[in-house]
Design a protein around this nucleic acid. Structure first.
Lengths: 206, 206
DNA sequence: CCGTGGTCCAAACGATCGTTTGAATCATAC
DNA sequence: GTATGATTCAAACGATCGTTTGGACCACGG
């Protein structure tokens, strides 16, 4: 075997994550995917049944952890009697930042996640709703308690904008390129700081 | 001929816009595209040379107009000696809103535009940079003049976030669904109002 | 030692992809 | 009417897609 500590199934997930981020779900073929993973072409169908289900598993591996980390961070903040808006936003943003910085392949997955937002694929949206929906609802309730001047519709509008902006920023999208002199870690930490300040100001507006 | 006022070339562009928005660039095949446009399969290659070039033309048809409208709106704002941050943001956001509401197929194109952001395709990014880059630079200069307390790096960070959030909001992305009772027009007008207030607060922060 | 179940492999399947071809059809000018 | 150039058409091209097949390989319990 090539890498004794990484099974065929794991190598397929890693290669899928990389290729989905680079070429999209429809644009990544199983042939270049299995070539990158150094497994046989039939291994994807053998271990995951189909390409569609492989997409699901790529998300599940990361979203389960990200979701529980966000909810745990939210619980910690809510346990503090006098928490701030910035604390809540940090609880939402920092786990994604940690995934992006600390976990191998995490930055790649965030790009895959942004692709999933851009896809109108019904199955993918259901999958995201199942995994993200509960956490998003919990955050919306906590944010709403901090912002009594906002009605529910206004609050949801703003949370929606924040979630989109976060996904873009974390995925290194957008037109402005980061300077080559700035490290990936510094770049993402500043992104989180800016996004938290920006989002807090936007939520407090009016 | 089927629709005497719409040529084959135009019907291809319309069908391409719709299918690219729904299925992405790689996910939309020329066969379903030409079937939707009610033209022969070979018509795409005859009129546009290749599928890749068809993608370019779909963008060119809309971006040329959006770009000049934004720059014209920016000029109008800059002509007023005492313009506000909200005026500048409106000059950036409202032309896209107008495209989305008033122009037939405009809402569809905004979804295509969001797909282009999600694609890391080098050719597409160059095309966007060529069309959007100059306008974005002009807006950055005007915004920077309104925000002397921000250094260049901080300003570019925040503009980047705004551009991403705008694209998401206009494309009807995000998790929160709009209520069925709210019309598409009302929905998008409120999106612009919220985004302008949100972005202004974020830019002014600290 | 042989059998059994899990894994991997080369090869092929039918389907669909973007593109090309060459003739049919149309509009226009002489 | 006829020649000319633009456009449309059915059909096929080679390539690539996701998936399936049937046997080879390997580890392990009998």
């Amino acid at each position: 075997m090539n890498a004794p500590h990484f099974s065929t199934k794991e190598r397929i997930l890693d290669a899928a994550e990389e290729l989905f981020a680079r070429n999209g779900f429809a644009g990544a073929s199983l042939r270049e995917l299995t070539a990158a993973a150094k497994v046989n072409l039939a291994a994807v169908n053998y271990h995951y049944g189909s390409k569609d289900n492989l997409v699901n598993e790529v998300f599940r591996r990361r979203l389960d952890e990200l979701n529980s980390e966000r909810l745990a961070a939210l619980d910690d903040v809510l346990a503090q009697p006098a928490h701030t808006l910035e604390d809540l936003l940090a609880a939402f943003i920092r786990p994604a930042l940690s995934l992006s910085i600390d976990k191998p392949g995490g930055a790649t997955f965030v790009r895959v996640l942004a692709r999933a937002y851009a896809e109108h694929n019904e199955r993918l949206r259901k999958f995201l709703s199942d995994n993200y929906g509960q956490a998003l609802k919990a955050f919306a309730a906590a944010l709403g308690a901090c912002l009594p001047h906002l009605d529910k519709e206004e609050l949801y509008w703003r949370i929606d904008i924040i979630a989109g902006a976060l996904t873009y920023a974390m995925a290194d999208f957008g037109v402005i390129k980061r300077r080559a002199s700035m490290s990936e870690q510094t770049y993402r930490e500043r992104a989180a700081e800016h996004l938290i300040r920006f989002a807090a100001a936007g939520l407090r507006a009016e």
